[in-house]
Amino acid sequence: MKKAVLTLVFLCVCVVSFAQSQPQVGDVLEVNAPKGEHYNHIDFPRLNILVKRGKLASYKPVINHKVLIDSVFTKENKTYVVLKKKDGTKFFGLQTTVEADYQKALESGELTIVNP
């Protein structure tokens, strides 16, 4: 009987933790600095494209900014999110939204979940 109860409790905990890891439209995330030279899991423009468009070759304008999840979709068993800035302005003055691989961006530290 103990084993059945413990198994049931364990399954409930697993289901609840899996449900919390799924992104929802309207969740708030924070953009962190990339580990290397550029972002690997967030689809920001490359630095050379920013220079060609007359902007500074730096990701500093988006670091530590809050973003909202605008939409969520799944492609090839990966969860992707479309992000937009919380204040409504454009990323680098060019793009209103960007795509990100949700799980990999969280694992690499490029995005963090902001607790409400």
Rank of each mutant, 00 (worst) to 15 (best):
M1H: 14
M1G: 15
K2W: 12
K3W: 10
K3H: 14
A4E: 09
V5H: 06
V5M: 13
V5G: 00
L6V: 04
L11C: 14
V13G: 03
V13P: 00
C14D: 00
S17F: 15
S17I: 10
Q22H: 07
P23A: 02
G26W: 07
V28M: 11
L29E: 03
L29K: 12
E30W: 00
A33V: 08
A33R: 15
K35T: 14
G36F: 08
E37N: 09
E37Q: 12
E37R: 10
H38F: 10
H38C: 08
H41D: 11
I42G: 01
F44H: 07
F44M: 12
F44E: 10
N48R: 11
N48H: 13
N48G: 02
V51K: 15
V51H: 07
L56N: 14
K60V: 06
H65V: 10
I69H: 04
I69N: 05
S71G: 07
S71R: 13
S71I: 00
V72R: 03
V72K: 08
Y80D: 00
L83I: 02
K84L: 10
K86V: 05
D87Y: 09
D87C: 11
T89G: 11
K90S: 09
F91Q: 03
F91W: 13
F92R: 03
L94H: 11
T96W: 09
T97C: 13
Y102M: 04
K104D: 14
A105C: 04
L106G: 03
G109E: 08
G109M: 02
E110W: 01
L111K: 03
V114S: 01
V114F: 05
N115G: 00
N115I: 08
